[in-house]
Write a protein that binds this DNA or RNA. Sequence first.
DNA 1: ATAACAGTTGAACAACTATTCAACTGATGA
DNA 2: TCATCAGTTGAATAGTTGTTCAACTGTTAT
Lengths: 120, 120
Amino acid sequence: MSKNEFICDCNIIHEEIVKKTLSKMPDEYLFNKLAEFFKILGDTTRARILFALDQNEMCVCDIANVLGMSKSSISHQLGILRRSGIVKCRRVGKEVYYMLDDEHVQEVFEVGIEHIEHRK
Amino acid sequence: MSKNEFICDCNIIHEEIVKKTLSKMPDEYLFNKLAEFFKILGDTTRARILFALDQNEMCVCDIANVLGMSKSSISHQLGILRRSGIVKCRRVGKEVYYMLDDEHVQEVFEVGIEHIEHRK
DNA sequence: ATAACAGTTGAACAACTATTCAACTGATGA
DNA sequence: TCATCAGTTGAATAGTTGTTCAACTGTTAT
């Protein structure tokens, strides 16, 4: 087998390892979705919103006050969380109440906190 | 208590909920660290590197070949993963072998995959 | 009707980030 | 010693993203 199958500019490649690993790699779709999910959790504002919503469902103004930020920026972030299926909302009169819609968020946060504690 | 303590431009706030939630919010440090951790996982290239390293320890060229990317870009991303304590490496001659250095990554990935499966 | 208010949305801007390129380091072997 | 090769690194660039601002919905109450 020629080295030319491989794209990298190097001579010594561990062909067997590369082939074996390639055969076990999930498809692009999974990695895109996985990265998308973690990217959403990887923002301080969104992480704080999710932590707050884990305590209570809350309206946009309440969240804005808890985080000390403007309604607009909170609403933008809630839109991202809503479109990704992580939170859902219900309207009551003029107010819109947001709540968590994914039990995996809590789980992932717990492991994340373990990671931080472990690295101290 | 005056509404003026609160920063958001709205009249109806649920004071008790806001205060209770505020008292339960972890400090800024935790959210920064948490977001930093998830931000690192929230990139397709890094997610694929970590998945590959979960199969075998590998040198930079092997990883570059598995992902179909340049040595340089892989090395940049490995640097980020190394500095955050998620991977470690050992040099053997001219080659540098990378491996996972955090069992929380696998855990978090599993929950992330559950999340994706659940959302299909 | 219309005023008031909670919330949303799009455009603009600034800050950040991933990849590329080129120059570099450090180890090997001829 | 010198050429070669694996890997690193900094600067540059293009693409992405979070917040702000202003204009807009939709609901309530007068």
